[in-house]
Design a binder for these strands. Structure first.
Length: 735
RNA sequence: AGCGGGGUGGGGUAGCUUGGAAAUCCCAUCAGGCUCAUAACCUGAAGAUCGCUAGUUCAAAUCUAGCCCCCGCUACCA
């Protein structure tokens, strides 16, 4: 028996937790913690909501409410979702507690006393009217390099040079236009450089880390660590416990990781064993595991260890089994695009074990994995329901129907013994896999055992034995029930709800949680009356989402070029006047491909609802679409002439909302060649995809939206399709 | 362009850290079986020169170098 501290990355309280959080950190942490409890280890698992992130203040400003309102709202929502999913924290708290503030300040003061913090004074603009210090990018002024009038404090959009705000001439507050004054402001910096050597040794010593975690960490360490500021001139966050710093707050990145420690302290207090947290933090025998996504690695393998080293006397992370990302139907999760699946929503439709199964079986342990509704339905229905659930159900229901009780186990033949031997082997393998945080492997081993159960059941054919040899029939059913029991116990960390339910159906005492891992080998109670069993899982039905829904966000229109001139500050760019029903100015990077004379005759397809961007000093109000590959470029154009401003809706309801460039980039559009067939296919060079709605002519090249294995040819009114002004290879990306 | 990750049968994946009988599992396809079960389960077949090219080695999906492609975070991307 040993002791384990399980830490799980803290979800930001600025939105609902989604599939990415669960598969990346919450679920592996929970599986690992449950497994450890099952084998009798003492476990403390903590996390909470990160309440102080900058995005929260942004959301709060938008809604015109205090940051607490936002943070509390999502903390409540997420706490419930997490518990509904069966994620069993010993404590799920938040960073907005008095306790967290105390612990954070204690860490701060201790590091300060030990000389790991350094006070540095830097000049920073302060806006009298706004009553606040301005982050660099909130200051605007004249660029000292190129003279551009509206350079931002961090960078000049015109010449591209990085700037410091105080270099700007005629600086103004970007929020109110007031002339800010330059004030000295003092901040504390964490001397990460003090720890470089120790950290390298630490990372090198930890050979059991996942390869990508260790390699990445060492890479960053060897590039050298810069001291980082840990305080800010803001008002939302943990106050700095130093005289003269009353108006400043501790930077979230410094404070949030302390949550692991403060949550442990809070837990101990709540348990009325105020000092018990120490058993998980100061006993070198206690191993700590940190579950998080790959974007968080440096904070847990470098910064947090540095803080702990500086503080002294506390355990460093033993393992940081960071997961990669789960992408959604090929794209990264993005709330604004509506391509996010949040857990509160998902739990309305699906039982927690079903969600847990898919997210565990498809966990991005070593590389990114993909969430797709189709795959979700397939894996749930074919694996969890058909193989695993069906084995349990056919065993239980057949036994109940024919015996009504747990049948006695008679003499065993070779096949029976072999089956039971496999159970033991599986138990060993699952245990090994889970000890090493190999969740997919463990889950697969369990599925394989379920399959073995099916094979066994098929081979012994109790349905024929029941009429010929009732004793033997009872024996093989008994064996089958033993397999079922073993499955339930092994699967408990993954599927706690259904496992406990099976346990009850087998008429065993207590719960799996109380019984522990030894429940796998425990005997059944012969002669015990059974209740009518109910299937654990139902097949899920996933209606195909509006296939190309996210493309509807685009407002595409026909644009006719009015005038073209060179961009004053860039040599690759043109400045274009284009009529899209109204005249707009756009920038385009076409200089290498077209002369301005050539362009003047073109009919274009323009994205009209992109958020305007300033490109090297000039505002661009739209973006023309072109396919590009291999230094070749072709403009999108309608196959027959359409008036300026005509909407290319492709049969959808175009969005009115402004689209950020980032969102736009997530949309996959390509050139494809019509192939015919039914349904019609489109050749994208490297692969072929099915074509929705509008048919392409065979051999001709079209612009198409692509999603998964489907494509939709862009078209305007009367199915006028979008083609290219010159030839471009199939598969070329459109942007 | 810089940094990080990856490219394995039609689709998705395991294995590659500790090289060794031409490779796992799920789906889809084909052919059988069974009927207890949520039209489920079981058996078998077809299908991959493991991105490309050199190299190390008796032996490479697995190690090394170069190249190509893909995906995330940054950039004069519109």
């Amino acid at each position: 028996m040993s002791r384990v501290l399980v830490c799980c990355a803290w979800p930001y309280a600025n939105g609902p937790v989604h599939v990415g959080h669960v598969t990346g950190s919450l679920l592996p942490a929970d599986i690992f913690a449950r497994f450890n409890r099952l084998v009798g280890n003492e476990v403390l698992m903590v996390s909470g909501s990160d309440m102080h992130g900058a995005p929260i203040t942004v959301s709060a400003d938008k809604e015109k409410v205090p940051p607490e309102t936002i943070a509390d709202r999502y903390h409540a929502l997420n706490s419930k979702a997490i518990s509904d999913l069966g994620i069993a924290f010993d404590l799920y708290t938040s960073t907005h507690t008095h306790n967290h503030e105390q612990v954070t300040q204690d860490v701060f003061v201790r590091l300060l006393e030990k000389g790991h913090l350094e006070k540095k004074s830097t000049p920073q603009f302060y806006c009298g009217r706004c009553g606040r210090f301005l982050p660099d990018r909130y200051v605007e002024g004249k660029c000292p390099h190129c003279g551009y009038e509206r350079a931002r404090g961090d960078q000049c959009d015109s010449c591209g040079k990085d700037l410091n705000a105080e270099e700007l001439m005629d600086a103004k507050c970007q929020l109110c236009g007031e002339v800010p004054e330059l004030k000295e402001t003092e901040h504390f910096f964490l001397k990460l450089s003090h720890f470089t050597e120790q950290l390298i040794r630490y990372a090198e010593a930890n050979g059991h880390w996942r390869p990508h975690v260790r390699a990445f960490t060492l890479n960053v360490l060897k590039e050298g660590l810069a001291d980082r500021p840990i305080t800010r001139d803001i008002s939302w966050g943990v106050p700095v416990p130093v005289k003269g710093f009353e108006d400043k707050r501790i930077y979230v990145w410094f404070e949030a990781v302390i949550g692991y420690l403060s949550a442990s302290v809070e837990w101990a207090k709540l348990e009325n064993r105020a000092e018990d947290w120490r058993r998980f933090w100061t006993d070198p025998e206690c191993k700590s595991y940190y579950f998080l996504g790959k974007d968080n690695i440096v904070f847990h393998t470098i910064i947090w260890p540095a803080m702990l080293l500086g503080y002294g006397g506390l355990n460093l992370p033993y393992d940081v089994p960071a997961n990669q990302f789960m992408t959604l139907e090929g794209q990264k999760f993005s709330k604004s695009m509506g391509v996010s699946i949040d857990i509160p929503d998902m739990l309305v439709k699906f039982r927690p074990d079903i969600v847990r199964y898919y997210l565990a079986a498809n966990m991005p342990e070593m590389k990114d994995s993909e969430f797709s509704w189709e795959d979700f339905a397939a894996r749930t229905n074919n694996e969890l329901v058909a193989t695993y659930g069906n084995f349990l159900h056919r065993t239980l229901s057949f036994t109940f129907k024919n015996f009504g009780e747990i049948p006695a186990k008679g003499a065993l033949d070779e096949r029976d013994k072999a089956a039971l031997a496999r159970v033991s082997e599986s138990a060993v393998e699952v245990r090994e896999a889970l000890s090493g945080c190999e969740f997919k492997r463990a889950m697969k081993t369990i599925m394989d055992l379920a399959q073995l159960g099916n094979q066994y059941f098929d081979a012994v054919a109790p349905w024929s034995l029941v009429g010929t040899d009732r004793t033997r029939c009872g024996t093989v059913l008994h064996i089958s029930l033993l397999i079922s029991k073993a499955l339930a116990v092994m699967a408990w960390p993954f599927l706690p709800f259904s496992s406990e339910s099976i346990w009850k159906q087998l008429r065993l005492e207590g719960t799996i949680e109380e019984t522990g891992w030894k429940g796998i080998e425990m005997p059944l109670k012969e002669g015990e009356k059974m209740d009518k069993p109910a299937p654990q899982f139902a097949k899920v039905d996933v209606k195909s989402e509006g296939d190309f829904q996210e493309f509807a966000a685009l407002d595409l229109r026909i644009g006719k070029v009015i005038d073209v001139s060179a961009h004053p500050n860039a040599d690759k760019l043109y400045l274009m006047e284009v009529d899209i029903g109204r005249p707009i100015t756009m920038i385009s990077g076409l200089k290498e491909f077209y002369t301005s004379e050539q362009l003047k005759t073109k009919t274009l397809v323009v994205v009209t609802n992109l958020e305007p961007a300033t490109i090297r000093g000039v505002k661009s109000q739209g973006m023309l679409l072109a396919a590009e590959e291999d230094k070749k470029l072709a403009l999108l154009t309608p196959e027959r002439d359409l008036p300026a401003g005509t909407q290319i809706s492709s049969g959808m309801d175009p969005g009115k909302r402004q689209l950020s460039f980032k969102e736009f980039q997530k949309l996959d559009m390509r050139a494809g060649t019509g192939l015919g067939g039914d349904p019609a296919m489109l050749d994208l060079g490297s692969r072929r995809v099915r074509c929705a709605e509008v048919r392409p002519d065979v051999g001709k090249r079209y612009a198409a939206f692509v999603k998964g294995d489907k494509a939709l040819v862009l078209h305007g009114p009367e199915d006028v399709r979008i083609v290219f002004d010159t030839d471009i290879p199939a598969g070329a990306k459109i942007r």
